[in-house]
């Protein structure tokens, strides 16, 4: 689906170095790393918002590619209602759309009956749900998320994580998820990558075996073990500075 080969990125100093990464279609991959390690830059490269200084970022089937991007902040337009925020990508692509289609997406993210509200009438979690619906409405198949749940309380966060997993499974999405929460990364993904800081390099990769029940997985000893293991790698990545 998405392929990074020998990618370097330099602004004033090196931000990313020697990134080789292949993400298969339908995969859920998380990227962990300390602040300022280039996680967000990696997403911007994946979304074509930025071009690498060296190396190539390419897509397996660029023709059918539709990218959805969820920012750290909900990034809604305060002058538009919830419904109008969600339909923005369709308007920009001059696609014909029905109100029902947009309402269906709002229902999918748990925001039924909120279509006429304005963003300032919503809670943080609800705003993030609008942001997710907006990223998906365009028939997105590659979803990029940049620490989307960082500002939410624990309960809202867990609810949104489960809803995201449900959407990922149903829509057969490919997801690249940036976070700084180790347990969130383990809980959500099939594969976790750890970036070191200054410049960001992939220093560790871990495949996560899938449990039937995610809740059971979160409580398991294996989860704890992976958590400690990744945390150690993360820590040594910071020390490498």
């Amino acid at each position: 689906m998405l392929n990074f080969s020998n990618v370097h990125m330099k602004f004033d100093k090196d931000v990313l170095s020697d990134i080789n990464l292949n993400i298969d279609s339908g995969e859920f991959v998380s990227i962990l790393g300390p602040s300022g390690c280039g996680k967000s830059t990696l997403l911007r490269l994946a979304s074509n918002l930025a071009k690498p200084t060296k190396g190539v970022v390419d897509y397996i089937s660029p023709k059918d590619l539709s990218i959805g991007f969820v920012f750290q902040n909900p990034t809604l337009m305060p002058w538009r209602t919830v419904l109008e925020n969600v339909t923005l990508p369709l308007e920009l692509n001059k696609k014909k759309f029905s109100k029902e289609e947009a309402l269906m997406w709002l229902a999918r993210v748990g925001l039924k009956d909120k279509e006429k509200s304005y963003p300032n009438e919503l809670s943080g979690g609800q705003m993030m749900r609008v942001s997710i619906a907006r990223s998906l409405i365009n028939g997105c198949n590659l979803l990029l998320l940049d620490e989307p749940f960082a500002a939410l309380d624990e309960i809202t966060r867990r609810k949104l994580e489960d809803d995201l997993l449900e959407i990922w499974e149903k829509e057969n999405l490919t997801v690249l998820f940036v976070t700084h929460s180790v347990s969130e990364a383990i809980y959500l993904s099939q594969r976790v990558l750890v970036l070191s800081s200054g410049p960001g390099k992939i220093v560790y990769e871990k495949n996560i075996s899938q449990y039937n029940s995610k809740e059971e997985f979160r409580g398991s000893k294996e989860f704890q073990a992976i958590n400690s293991e990744i945390f150690e790698k993360l820590k040594s990545g910071v020390n490498n500075e």
Partner: peptide, 24 residues
Amino acid sequence: NLKELFLINRASKWQTLMKLNLPY
């Protein structure tokens, strides 16, 4: 980020002006 959202959705200059810059 809103500007980036418009870029990702390949908005034209006119669309960015009318739907983003002027309302903002």
